[in-house]
Each structure stands twice: as structure tokens, then as C-alpha cells.
Amino acid sequence: SGVGSLSGSYVAPKAVWLPAMKAKGLEISGTFTRQVGSITMDLQLTNKALQAMTDFAIQFNRNSFGLAPAAPLQVHAPLSPNQTVEISLPLSSVGSVMKMEPLNNLQVAVKNNIDVFYFSTLYSLHILFVEDGKMDRQMFLATWKDIPNENEAQFQIRDCPLNSEAVSTKLQSSNIFTVARRTVEGQDMLYQSLKLTNGIWVLAELRVQPGNPSLTLSLKCRAPEVSQHVHQAYETILKN
């Protein structure tokens, strides 16, 4: 409902995923975005070869969350030497699933008229946090109790000098929702929920102490292997 949710989740700056020297002159930079329920892979293709490039196509290997291109890679004209083109590739999350190591690894193949090239990249899990990830309060309490303590992971988020209001607002713009908030002995305890595109729920308790730039994040999830990646997403969102 805030400006945050209109502008969408945090977007990392583009990074070089495929250097030209490894791809016969084709350089690919990219990042991932999530906006109003749609995931896109934002790509920048640069031709650093001496000949024009045509006939582009892209394919993903099966991956942990079923990410797949939802449309062909559209490069409308031949890419001339020294030319750069920006492409927004829509993604779906209902492709074939295969658990990757690490969980957020994505292997990509890109072809053009010269050859086929392969690269892998890691995505921040927050692109998978869905807009209806606010769990009902009663359900939250029941689920929190139901998930065994062995499935709880705790992390410190250092150097984050935000108050609980700012933390809550920032996280909500990336679909991490505050379900309840309590103050105990001067600490603000935020109870939060998020849901991944594959339906996995993650419950969080975030402790914020006024004047202390270190936050304590406790995560409970029935699939505990996602917790470290959710922690990383919290770091990424809160520190940008």
C-alpha cells in the first residue's frame, strides 16, 4: 500500500555475468527485478566482436525454484560491433525444478549465430517473495508453535542503524510483512512473514534495540535450507 510496494522490490545493480573474452565477443550483464508480481531478468548485451551478432536465444537449466524464461529472448535487429542492447526478459516460476547447490544458483545458456555460451549466476531470494505473503495472525502463532525449534536459525544483521518503523517499511516494499509488533524490555520484536513463489512460508522474529545497530533475526521454516538465503535477502534489502 506504500510507495515501496508501487516501486517494487530492491534491484541490485547489473553485474557482468559473461565476460566478452569467454564468449567470442558477447558480453552479458544483468540483474533480476520483481515488480507487482512479475519477475524479470534485465539483461544488457554488448557486441565486442568484429562481426554482427544475430539469432539470439536463451535457455535455463532446471533450478531450485522453477525459474524459466516466459518469452523468447527478443533482439530485434542484428547487434553490430560495439553496440549494446537492453532487454527485459519476463520469467515464470513454474518451470522444471531441480535442487541446485547453492539453492539460488541459476545456470543459463545463450546462443547466437557464432556459438552457444554458458554461465551461472546467483539470485537474491527476495525476487521470489510474493505479494500475498502476509500470514493471518492466528495462523502465524499456530505455525510458529508447530515448527520445531531445530528448524529455527538465528542471524545477526550488523551495521543497520534503522528503527523498527523504518525496518518494517523497507522490508514491506520487498514483500516481507510485519504481522505483529511488541516491545519487551526496550526491545522491539517484529513478527514477520513471507511466502516464496513455490508456496513455502518463512516466519521471522526481528529484534530491534534502540541505539543498537545490530539486529537479531530468527527464522522458522519447514524447509530450513532456505533460511540462510532469506537472511541474505534481509541483509540486501535493509542495507540498500
Binding site: 495472525r137 492466528q138 502463532l141 505483529a180 511488541r182 519487551v184 524490555e185 520484536m189 513478527y191 530468527s218
Partner: peptide
């Protein structure tokens, strides 16, 4: 608004986490 007991339940949860 109906008192559904949930406010109190969250308070108890927060208390138990701070003083286990």
C-alpha cells in the same frame, strides 16, 4: 473489534522469547 485473544498471545510469545 472482537478481542480474539491474539494480541495477548503475541505479547506472551514476545515475553517468552525475551525471558525463556
Amino acid at each position: 473489534e472482537l478481542d480474539d485473544g491474539l494480541d495477548e498471545a503475541f505479547s506472551r510469545l514476545a515475553q517468552s522469547r525475551t525471558n525463556p
